[in-house]
Design a protein around this nucleic acid. Structure first.
Lengths: 209, 209, 209, 209
DNA sequence: CAGTAAGCGAGACGGTACGTCAGGTCTTGGG
DNA sequence: CCCAAGACCTGACGTACCGTCTCGCTTACTG
């Protein structure tokens, strides 16, 4: 038997009620007024909390939003195991892209990615607590394929993640075109290696922009 | 004879001296204090211009920076024509990634991409005056390959751009790992179609993160 | 002929309108909510000015109030010249005490004297711009008496001021009993030296507290 | 026999240790950081007490300081009885002025007098528990003189106190010149009535400010 | 000798105001 | 009409303390 790991700190406990009210307010407000219009004061006012309570627990409004996202949105993407790399990848991408089409969630994520560029310390936190977790999920699929001998030689596992998530984020951040399932298919095709019985579509002239 | 297209407006001409001083100050300051620390007042003070002069000609500090980037950094990437799609793509990517390793330039571009997420109107301008031009350059290469019959069926031209620029931006924005030539090679491999005499590297176990 | 003493500074001029609105608001508010309830934010809100405008021109709310007092209240006390020290002193004291019974003015002055105890730098300003001017006025009367040979040997001129203003301020600050004309008379009696034909009142038992 | 006036309440007794630690901390802190910088939180931190403990027993920081003064400084002034009004007054004034030159004590008293102007309720307490006691002491001397027939007709007993304490406080609050014994002498001279064998000093020109 | 009623240090809470920063606008005098 | 300077109103920042409210504990009287 070992001692209690929590040394029973003195003083009033953190209010779960306030915590939730703040996250809810942040999530509502960012939708109503946009990230540029989101302020700590606004969150405090809407949630009925004092500003200090927010500053006590979160270093910036982006951190509040990061927590709010985790608490309020279902970001879970299951990690499939369907026997083949191509199938797993397609399932993973389809689910990811579907989430990528959720305007509310992606609005917040765009803002967080933006803030991560401007605030170095938040960038670190955002990478660790969000971006890396997505890569970890994909890595499980890739590892499994590798063990199976199912994985093409090129690209390397890290690059797979760069391509997959890069393409997704680029659509969201740069072209603002929602990532659709056709894009997922194309990615599976070029990343999945030679597919048995996957007849490539005829290369008709297509216009791009 | 018709009137002058420029109606020869009365009053003092715009000062080229001020314009350049402002762009120079903006470019210096963003390096010194970061985008978060960059302010219109700071640019005015450093450049010796009045705030009004900046507001008269640019709608936001990001627009100043966008102009400053064009004026101060050589962003030119030549469009190669080396006879084969794979070769052209490799050359284009190598040059693009090289620019992507320039810390100063990418620092500014990260900031602009961030601002584009937060300010919708600037986002439009940024897409049109920067992002789309890169896509247009790549499109020329792809068009040429298509005419040559050199282009793989998958992915579609638009998706090629999404993958290429997506991967590049993702490295810059998300993983903060500078895009290297190995990554360019991998992209060429999966996008270039079956290469004559390009023996794929042996698929040894590689660790990813 | 000499040059203009004002070097014609560039930039927008200070707004007289704002200045007056701020002083008026401060004077109204201190009456409504008391000095403890007076805030810079409140003055800004009431006057329609920005906080920065107040901070630009006054170092503290007490300084605003000091200016407001000068602008809004008639603090003038004429310096009499009636031929005798005792008569001049009586006139001066009567006028001073009358002002000392103005609740609005004394409310502000009590607050300023209080603030002067707490903020050393304001204390300096308050002494120079208010307290010393009162002493200067009295000094003129005393000087005149001295030239006339009309002045008692004791107390010394400086002490006269200490006693006169001390007694007045003490009533205002400590006992909160408004200074009345009887008190002025008593002060004239003990400070004015032997008065021709001023029969002292019989020393009947008087209760004090 | 009647009940105990204190009903012997249950529960923990007030901690004398805390009480003293708080008063000591308050007295130290006001010297170190000045009254403006003195805070309840600071006193709590320095004394090792909880804020609640302070709020339980004192209504404001000024009240803490008032108690601290009584506990930490010797404010006692003996009431002399030397046979004549003039002598008693001189002794009383000399002792009072000596205390008035103690920088530490007067620093605190200035702050308390200031606070009394701003906080009406504390003002009441300060008057009753401090100012009035000083007046009471002087009143004993005056009463004795009156019984002896030693008291001049003017000024009235209450006015004597106003003049004496007014002059003292004015020096402390307004001119910031420590009250010296010469001032005491002058007050005795004008308040003590015709003194046997007190030749007035020759009225040479004296400068005042 | 258990029960219970304070008092205690600690510290989180909702507030209010602080003094500062920068935004974007307006005014001035000069070119 | 442009320009540098700089005052203006606005709004949010992040901080400091306020006075109040739990917490878990200690202490001491009471039934």
């Amino acid at each position: 038997m070992n001692d209690q790991p929590i040394p029973a700190r003195p003083g009033r406990k953190r209010s779960e009620e306030s915590r939730l009210a703040i996250l809810t307010a942040a999530f509502q407000l960012v939708e109503e007024v946009g990230y540029a219009g989101l302020t700590i004061e606004g969150i405090a006012a809407r949630s009925g909390a004092g500003k200090q309570t927010i500053y006590r627990w979160w270093p910036s409004k982006a951190d509040v939003l990061l927590d709010a996202l985790a608490a309020k949105a279902n970001l879970h993407i299951p990690i499939p195991d369907e026997g083949s790399y191509a199938a797993d990848l397609r399932t993973f991408l389809t689910a990811s892209f579907k989430l990528g089409r959720d305007r509310r969630v992606m609005g917040v994520l765009r803002a967080l990615m933006a803030h991560a560029q401007i605030d170095e310390e938040f960038g670190e936190r955002f990478r660790n607590s969000f971006l890396q977790r997505r890569r970890d999920a994909l890595a499980i699929i890739v590892d499994r394929a590798q063990e199976r001998g199912d994985l093409p030689a090129v690209p390397s596992p890290g690059t797979i993640a760069d391509i997959v998530f890069g393409t997704l984020w680029y659509r969201v951040l740069a072209t603002r075109q929602p990532p659709d399932d056709r894009l997922a298919d194309e990615l599976v095709t070029i990343l999945g290696g030679p597919q048995p019985g996957t007849a490539p579509p005829t290369s008709t002239q297509r216009k791009h922009r």
